[in-house]
């Protein structure tokens, strides 16, 4: 058991460090993000190391604990952004609450329309939250965490690619509106895009990311009460 843990953790960290070096050498090209390169690398090479995926997953328990402390660490950016949040409290609150409810509501209605099964539905619902939060919410809803990861990442990527164009078509010019919309939908990817647009957009999207996570994770218990 401990042996498994050492091997899984060791391989992952080692591959990540190499992936990070490549990412930095390539001037932080979005497509060379260690998340993609390292995952694909490990997915292909784990069988060569005579390590099946089940053993690897069983040994990766340390990472799920660290995921929880990562959520706790989000308190630090939230604290630093607090003056800006306090100043725009109603604006941010309105946008994120309505947007978050629309996200959960539209997922729920589309999934019901398509007759999607309960466990997959539970993995879909928290997808608007940042990954660590979505993962723990999916777990408590009875979803499949592995699927939630996939859903969170694809919806973030989709929003990251389409979001700026959609905002342009709708002629939304307000910096706060653009930042909040991108942060609420594409999380960290959205925040990186918004930082290129400007400081206010960047800060707003970072705020949207943390507050969406809080709102999604507090809306979900209500869903559990009614289902």
């Amino acid at each position: 058991m401990i042996e498994n843990m050492l091997i899984s953790t060791g391989i992952t960290v080692f591959a990540y460090l190499i992936g990070l070096k490549i990412f930095q050498a390539a001037n932080r090209n979005v497509w060379l993000n260690p998340l993609y390169t390292v995952t694909v690398f490990l997915f292909i090479f784990l069988p060569f190391l005579h390590l099946d995926y089940k053993t690897y997953e069983n040994g990766s328990g340390l990472f799920s604990i660290l995921m929880q402390t990562a959520i706790v660490s989000l308190a630090i950016p939230l604290y630093k952004q607090w003056p800006l949040i306090k100043k725009n409290f109603k604006k941010i609150g309105t946008g994120i609450f309505i947007g978050g409810a629309a996200g959960v509501g539209s997922t729920l209605s589309l999934a019901t329309l398509f007759g999607i099964k309960k466990d997959i539905m539970a993995s879909l619902l928290p997808k608007a939250a940042t990954l660590p939060v979505a993962l723990s919410a999916s777990g408590s809803l009875g979803g499949v965490p592995a699927l939630t990861v996939l859903f969170v990442l694809t919806s973030a990527l989709f929003s990251f690619i389409c979001g700026p164009k959609v905002l342009e078509w709708l002629n939304i010019k307000s910096k706060a509106a653009k930042g909040l919309a991108m942060g609420a939908s594409a999380q960290a990817l959205g925040a990186s895009k918004c930082l290129q647009w400007g400081e206010e957009e960047g800060a707003m999207s970072a705020i949207a990311m943390t507050t969406t996570a809080i709102i999604v994770s507090s809306l979900i218990p209500f869903y559990m009460l009614f289902s």
Binding site: I96, G103, I172, L180, A181
Partner: peptide, 19 residues
């Protein structure tokens, strides 16, 4: 469709309501 639809929903509704 579910993922794309609800992502668009979040972008459009958040953006519009803030503006």
């Amino acid at each position: 469709v579910v993922i794309a639809g609800s992502s668009l929903c979040i972008i459009v509704i958040t953006g519009y309501s803030v503006e």
